[in-house]
Amino acid sequence: MAPIVKVSNLDKYFGRLHVLKNVSLEVSEQEVVCLIGRSGSGKSTLLRCMNFLEEPSDGSIELDGIKIEASSKGKIHRQMIHEVRLKTGMVFQEFNLFPHMSVLENVMEGPVIVKGMDQQTAMELAEKSLDSVGMLFKKDEYPARLSGGQKQRVAIARALTMEPKVMLFDEPTSALDPELIGEVLNVMKKVAKEGMTMIVVTHEMAFAREVADRVLVMSEGEMIEDSPPEELFKNPKDARTKALIERYRSGEQ
């Protein structure tokens, strides 16, 4: 199957700090890819480059047929970024729900404002999404009245309502209390089962093992491993991957 996401020779500098070093990867349609690595390894930056929340310094990103070179600029470049953002949904570590809007309004905002959908259609769509993450019963609440897990489920619904081709998850459970992680992971599993292409930056090894088709490992801005989970966890090729997995194993006990 042709890749829906194709990252080629991506470099990213923050000033003199080289955070992504010639990174390339491909993700096929309906594939679930987990991106792991220690903090500071560049995995979040890589993910954020995919919808241009971070502008890559060099290389290119192709997403569902739209190819953007890091070096290009100007109006067409911005238009292409806009289109890529329409094709991607993003879920953040800190949820980033809009606090001044109700749950339903949060989810309707994209369809109404960005896509120009009429209120009625948008509402039906939003309610359907909220139902699919089990949050319809809180649709009139404001985000501050929700638990972290509930907020994250609403955030997932907000992203899904835009009907993206690819979902990007940036450590979606890292800000959650341990007892709330399960409900979010369950929703993510459901989304994966429905055939969504997903790229997930995570520390949840169990999730990666169970749900991912491939696990990518990053270390100091480089992609050091790309294997199916069973292989990666059984016999990691790179010593650094081995150390990473050992660390998680000991943490899990």
Partner: peptide
């Protein structure tokens, strides 16, 4: 209004002026 708010708005495809009008200014 935190940076995350702007990023969330941009991630769903809002333009800078929509982000300002709908997300940042009201807060």
């Amino acid at each position: 209004v935190g940076k995350g708010q702007r990023e969330a708005a941009m991630a769903i495809g809002m333009t800078p002026s929509q982000t300002m009008r709908r997300i940042v200014l009201p807060q």
